[in-house]
Simulated assay, not measured.
Amino acid sequence: MAGYNLGEFYATRDAWNSRHAQWQSHCAIVSSQSAAQPEEQHEHSKNTGSGINGDLKEGSIQILAASNGAAAKSMMMILPKPLSIADLAMPPSHGSTLRVAYQGVPGAYSEAAASKAYPECEPIPCEQFEATFQAVELWIADRAVLPIENSLGGSIHRNYDLLLRHRLHIVGEVQLPVHHCLMALPGASIEGIRRVISHPQALAQVEHTLTNLGLQAAREAVDDTAGAAQHIVANNLRDTAAVASARAAEIYGMDVLASGIQDDPGNMTRFLMLAREPIIPRTDRRFKTSIVFALEEAPGALFKALSAFALRNINLTKIESRPQKNRPVRVVDDSNHGTAKYFEYLFYIDFEASMADPRAQNALGQLQEFASFIRVLGSYPMDMTPVVPPGKPKVISTT
């Protein structure tokens, strides 16, 4: 191949293998024991080699929960650094364990969702949502698990846009109850907290509870819930608390001052499981199908599109509209009011039917008559796992 520098290839490969070996020696991410989707349990990578987590056992994470804050800070350095876009240029070193990419740092809710979807997986943290897609496309990871909507905060629009930009397929969904905890460095008390940091949605989801606890601290938004806990430990911020998961407190050696502090006990986040190849649709269990389409501007166009499902008794579980980025605004001359501007939209729809169901096939056939563009993002099993409601907020430490 003209212009191909073999020396640069080997140098890049050696850099990746060196970092991979460091991860293999130190990473200690604990996988959850929740149930996986039956269709996904057997889809493990067929490549050979050692995994990122190696042979470390669950007990090795306990060292990070040392009561001494300084010890927790020093041990925090052994956690895997999230992949960045630059890291994805390096050739991968595949392992035999299913590798699942997620956005965030260890202790993030996305990591818990990845472990619930694939209990025996090797979670791979990534800095950005974009990096999780690229990790799968470049064969660094086998799956990606990304949040798509929250019962309180609504849709994660960034991931809707990325679903269209990339060619990954939705192969499953997992719903994760969000149980927030207030945590600080060992020895801290609620009375001594002057600042609370977390992801902006997490802060909004605990506002009333924090006020009821008598916490009059300033709120500050950061990129990640678990990242907030990591930041406090790294900078020894004794007057600052984080809102994150109980697992984040365990990893970073923090004290939980109060647990279950979400304002709404039904706080739930839905995650999508993504893969390079689609799964085969079936009709022997409940399936959901996700599509995206565009319509030509015309009176009743959306009504006609949706009627393709209503006439076949297909239940729509979600509809989301996003402006088309290549032509977001349409200019129409209006003799009475000058120039009117209209956004052109893409419509994302989830409906309860498998693509193996003739009703779904016929509905999409009718939709094609009105749509200028249509794409099936995935047809996958619905998450039917029962949800156990959390208890009331519990103050664990105020001294």
Results as ranks from 00 to 15, higher is better:
S96N: 08
D383C: 03
A21G: 05
P381C: 06
G54I: 09
D264Y: 11
I78S: 13
D142H: 11
F351P: 07
S32H: 05
I314Q: 01
A21I: 05
A114T: 06
L64Q: 03
Y102W: 02
A11W: 10
A218E: 13
S321Q: 05
L83S: 04
T97G: 08
A66N: 07
A258I: 01
A188I: 03
P323K: 11
T97L: 15
A36G: 03
L56N: 15
H179A: 02
V388P: 04
K318E: 10
S397C: 14
L213K: 04
H208M: 11
K318G: 13
A371P: 04
V196G: 01
M254S: 01
V388K: 12
A2T: 15
M254Q: 05
C27H: 02
A131H: 04
Q103A: 10
F347E: 07
V206Q: 06
A184Y: 06
Q216A: 09
L146G: 00
S198Y: 09
D87M: 13
N47R: 14
L295N: 00
R276Y: 07
G104V: 10
R330Q: 10
M355L: 15
C126S: 11
Y252R: 04
Q62F: 12
F9I: 07
R322T: 06
P186M: 00
R99L: 12
R99V: 11
E191Q: 01
N159F: 11
R312C: 07
Q324I: 00
V145N: 14
F343C: 00
G365H: 09
I349V: 14
S155F: 14
V196A: 01
A113W: 08
D357G: 00
E40K: 04
I396N: 15
Q62W: 15
Q262C: 04
R158K: 13
A275W: 02
S18G: 03
G3L: 12
N53Y: 09
E296A: 11
N47E: 15
A248L: 05
P299A: 10
E250S: 12
Y345N: 09
A217H: 08
T48K: 06
N267Y: 06
A353C: 09
H94E: 08
H166F: 12
K288Y: 07
A234P: 00
V395D: 08
A202V: 01
T209D: 04
A310M: 09
L210W: 08
A298W: 02
Q134V: 14
R219L: 07
S45P: 01
T269V: 11
Q128P: 04
A340N: 13
N326H: 11
S290P: 03
A71F: 10
K73I: 05
A229D: 01
L237I: 08
P299C: 08
T240M: 03
E173K: 01
N53I: 09
N313T: 11
N267G: 07
